[in-house]
């Protein structure tokens, strides 16, 4: 199972990197979002993908899943959600102001 997920993480990273290197703003945002998802999966895998009961005291189970990676991912997902929202709003503002979504056009120069 870990091997499968590792391959999946690799594929997600590859797609994310490809998208970030393109010129279109929206693709870059999608790429960054994909990379964060790959990282989240990696955290989940880092705790080991074993099956066990929820780690709550008082249950009858004898072995539990590691709760820490899940807590970390929850936080990371929320943060990623917020940052992606900021990026989307910002890119929309940029599109309104500059009338382009091509990063080549947004290089900027010193005379402004």
């Amino acid at each position: 199972m870990e091997t499968m997920i590792s391959i999946l993480i690799g594929i997600l990273f590859a797609i994310g990197t490809y998208l970030i290197l393109t010129k279109q703003l929206l693709r870059i945002i999608l790429g960054s979002s994909l990379i964060t998802h790959a990282v989240n999966l990696l955290i989940l895998t880092s705790g080991g993908l074993k099956d066990g009961a929820p780690p709550l005291i008082g249950g009858k189970a004898t072995h539990f899943t590691d709760a820490l990676p899940q807590a970390l991912i929850l936080t990371a997902i929320v943060i990623n959600f917020g940052v992606t929202a900021i990026l989307l709003v910002l890119s929309y503002r940029i599109y309104q102001t500059f009338r382009t979504d091509d990063m080549e056009m947004l290089r900027g120069n010193d005379d402004e």
């Binding site: 955290i43 910002l90 900027g108």
Partner: peptide, 29 residues
């Protein structure tokens, strides 16, 4: 200028945060 530069700033930091989490995940495993 602010719109343009902030976009780059945010993108750089999003990627570096992803690397930070990568490090955390590896270190945890």
């Amino acid at each position: 200028a602010q719109l343009r530069e902030s976009l780059k700033y945010i993108l750089i930091n999003v990627v570096s945060s992803a690397f930070f989490l990568l490090g955390v995940a590896y270190l945890y495993s």
